[in-house]
Amino acid sequence: MQWLTLLQKEMTENVRNVKWIWVPLIMILIAIMDPLSNYYLPQIIDAAGGMPEGAEIQLPDYQPSDIVMMSLGQFSSIGVLIIALMTMGTISGERKSGVSELILVKPVSYVNYISSKWTAAVLLTLVSFSLGMVASWYYINLLFGELSFGALMQVLFFYGLWLMLVVSLSIFYNTLCRTPGLVAFLTIATIVLMNLVTTIFSHLLDWSPNKIANYIQQLLISGSVPSELIGAAIVTIVMSAVLLIASVYTFKTKDMAA
């Protein structure tokens, strides 16, 4: 029950600092940016002065799955950046300002403290991401063609796992260092590095979490879940769990120092 109280405290805090308003709005915005701008591309080109005489560009005929991938592409860049910036101070900031000491002086277990922080951040991230994808799905059905609700749910589930890993990484770095800016930098650096390693050793790392987006594309085109996607999902869950355990451990050992 202590955990619930702590979670409630986190939720209230996120409502007070208006994260529950701006994070969902940003996620909706970055999700619908690409469907809209691609649909209106001909008009935008016209408004910008039109094509030169005689030039002709055949605009591709987008399938719904292409647009989903574009929205996910935005999430993997701007979305990850927003998540890293939004969670960068959640523990490190409290330690800097001394709030965490106020909490931990009471008989609060480290596990509860970290996991309530993690749950609050994951909830906020996943709800915002889902709202964004639902908005994108609405526009896809309106402007580009049918995409089934089942497909949307699969996209939400598998890509949500990847975003969960991003939050876990950020929480882990939160326990490791005290400067919020450094936390955000390390989170993003790690993701870039993971991306690089996955690209270089692509043939070896079939189950890398970074490949989830590629597998989602296969899933949307073929309509069935590729077996590699299940593997990648399991690896992602295991990595998140390990990061969470590691953050409790580093928090325990580093808390009293300095």
Partner: peptide, 23 residues
């Protein structure tokens, strides 16, 4: 161009922007 645009499509963008600004 303004009159050609489908306002039902573009309105959400403006609403989001307005809410962000006001909040």
């Amino acid at each position: 161009i303004l009159s050609e645009m489908d306002w039902a499509v573009v309105a959400p963008l403006l609403v989001i922007q307005a809410i962000l600004l006001i909040v």
